[in-house]
Amino acid sequence: MGYQYTAIGDSLTTGFGALPGNGFVPVYRRMAETSLGTTVSSTNLGVNGSTTAELGQRLRNNTLYRMALRQSDLITLSIGGNDLIRAAKSAAAQQGDSSRILSGALQECKRNFTGIMGTIAELKSGAREPYIIRIVGLYNPFPQFGEATEWVLHFNRYASQYTNGVCRFAAIYSHFAGNEKALLSLDHLHPNGRGYRVIAGQLNALGYGWLR
Rank of each mutant, 00 (worst) to 15 (best):
Q4V: 08
T39H: 09
Y3M: 01
G15H: 01
M117Y: 03
T119Q: 15
A159T: 07
Q95D: 03
V136M: 13
P191Y: 12
K89W: 07
Y131Q: 06
V27E: 03
F24T: 01
M31T: 02
L45S: 09
A93L: 13
Y173S: 08
G15D: 02
L183E: 05
P26S: 04
R66D: 10
T163M: 06
Y208C: 05
Q71E: 13
K124M: 04
E54G: 14
Q94N: 14
T34E: 15
G104F: 08
R111V: 01
R29G: 04
F16E: 10
P191A: 09
L74H: 04
A105N: 09
N61E: 11
A200W: 04
G146A: 14
R60M: 09
G193M: 08
A91I: 02
L186M: 13
Q71M: 10
I132W: 01
A170I: 11
F142E: 08
R66V: 07
L106E: 03
L183A: 08
I199V: 15
D10G: 00
G80L: 01
T114L: 00
F169G: 08
V25L: 05
F113Y: 15
F16Y: 13
A105V: 03
A18I: 01
N82R: 07
G17R: 00
V40R: 03
I116V: 12
R157T: 12
A127H: 11
S41V: 15
A177H: 14
L12S: 03
F16K: 10
M117I: 12
G15L: 02
